[in-house]
């Protein structure tokens, strides 16, 4: 059962990474990066690493995404 969940998570990680690289608009790439970090956090919890999972959630969902949105807004908007 756990093996099935791990395979599904790995498949989603590769799928969202391909979407983040080959998307047309910048906002779509950014949202795909955020979903990639969330899937990575679930994989960390299954691999018995709670400290790393907490740090990755707070930093990749809060700080990095916020900074990216401020930059995209100040350099010409959504193109």
């Amino acid at each position: 059962m756990i093996q099935l969940i791990i395979y599904l998570l790995l498949f989603f990680i590769i799928l969202t990474a391909f979407f983040a690289v080959f998307a047309n608009s910048l906002i779509s790439s950014l949202i795909a990066l955020s979903i990639l970090s969330s899937n990575l956090v679930i994989l960390f919890v299954i691999l018995q690493a709670p400290d790393v999972a907490l740090a990755e959630v707070v930093i990749a969902s809060g700080i990095t995404t916020g900074f990216f949105i401020i930059t995209i807004d100040k350099t010409g908007g959504r193109r």
């Binding site: 709670p50 400290d51 999972a53 907490l54 740090a55 707070v58 930093i59 809060g62 700080i63």
Partner: peptide, 13 residues
């Protein structure tokens, strides 16, 4: 689980 770094980032949030 936690530590100094995680708490500091929550303060910044």
């Amino acid at each position: 689980p936690g530590g100094g770094f995680t708490g500091g980032v929550v303060i910044a949030t």
